[in-house]
């Protein structure tokens, strides 16, 4: 015990909340921050918008019969001669920006979530194996993790894509390679703490199979840090994919994610046609902020050290 005088305060609210299940408690803790709720609502809206893009978008931006080159580079709010209003303007090919953004959001989210999911799967398995088996396996995995993490994600992705070439699958692969180490490190750290606890010992003495101990006993207890990393990483993956696509080494032009839309607008920026890259960027920014707000709050409520 330290000489801290806040100690009576920490104990105070505890007894009142004894009966509530941990999930309920976490949930109510999450909703304590207005900012986090705003983030969550925003995120849900963004996901819905991306899911239902074909229904929501005024046009299918990749159906050439629906776009008109005569309508190119129109500012926000302009009207085409057919009477259609381009709320966010049009791009260099005369595509409605709003439609382009909705479709682009879809691609960005899919790439981000897919790569995040596989990275989580691979990374967590590696981390848990490292913690459970120890010894050489652990040394090998952790050396790999250290090596990976000592180089910035963008550099690793850049090199991989330089080697692999362009394509959705290649971008996802690069993003997985870039991300898995974070999950591995976090899950190993949590598992090492858990491993020393008695219930793992007793599970072992019951001669439960190794995978069973890892996945039924270790994994659930390592989830909190993994979840926190997961949210942050999906945001990072989306941003990284956009960056790579912007640089021209990410997704091919046939899969126009937000990054590619922004990149297209770059050419028009200097002539003052800001909207072509501004609005896709705004969509990207809002998505990332929403995820980060949720992630921030998750980290606060799942972190035992910061519980107030």
């Amino acid at each position: 015990m330290s000489a801290s005088q806040t100690e009576p305060l920490a104990a105070a609210p505890a007894p009142a909340k004894k009966a509530i299940s941990p999930w309920r408690r976490l949930l109510s803790a999450f909703f304590e921050s207005k900012l986090a709720v705003v983030g969550l609502v925003g995120l849900v809206l963004i996901i819905l918008a991306a899911l239902f893009a074909p229904l929501l978008a005024p046009q299918n931006p990749y159906d050439l019969t629906q776009i008109d080159i005569m309508d190119s580079k129109l500012p926000p709010g302009a009207e085409s001669y057919t009477g259609m209003i381009y709320v966010l303007g049009t791009d260099g090919q005369g595509r409605d920006m709003l439609s382009g953004i909705l479709y682009g959001l879809r691609i960005s989210l899919i790439v981000g979530v897919l790569s995040g999911f596989f990275a989580l799967l691979i990374g967590t398995s590696m981390g848990l194996s490292a913690a459970y088996f120890g010894g050489r396996v652990e040394t090998l995995i952790m050396r790999l993790v250290d090596l990976q993490l000592s180089f910035p994600a963008i550099l690793v992705a850049l090199i991989l894509l330089a080697i692999l070439g362009r394509g959705v699958d290649k971008v996802i692969l690069a993003l997985i390679v870039v991300q898995w180490a974070y999950y591995a490190r976090a899950s190993r750290g949590a598992a090492l703490v858990e491993r020393r606890k008695e219930y793992i010992e007793s599970a072992r003495s019951l001669a439960l199979s190794t995978p069973r101990i890892i996945f039924r006993h270790l994994l659930p207890n390592c989830l909190p840090p993994v979840i926190v990393i997961g949210t942050v990483q999906v945001a990072n993956a989306i941003a990284l994919e956009a960056t790579l696509s912007f640089l021209g080494i990410g997704l091919p032009v046939t899969e126009p994610s937000l990054g590619l839309l922004i990149s297209n607008g770059f050419n028009y920026l200097l002539s003052g046609r800001y909207w072509i890259s501004f609005f896709p960027g705004l969509a990207l920014l809002l998505t990332i902020i929403a995820i980060n707000l949720v992630g921030d709050q998750l980290r606060d409520i799942l972190n035992p050290r910061l519980q107030r």
């Binding site: 945001a235 960056t243 607008g265 501004f278 990207l284 990332i288 980060n292």
Partner: peptide
């Protein structure tokens, strides 16, 4: 700082 974290680097440069 949350904003700075979320701002995609390349887009922020364009802006």
């Amino acid at each position: 700082s949350i904003f700075g974290f979320s701002l995609p680097n390349f887009w922020q440069g364009l802006m």
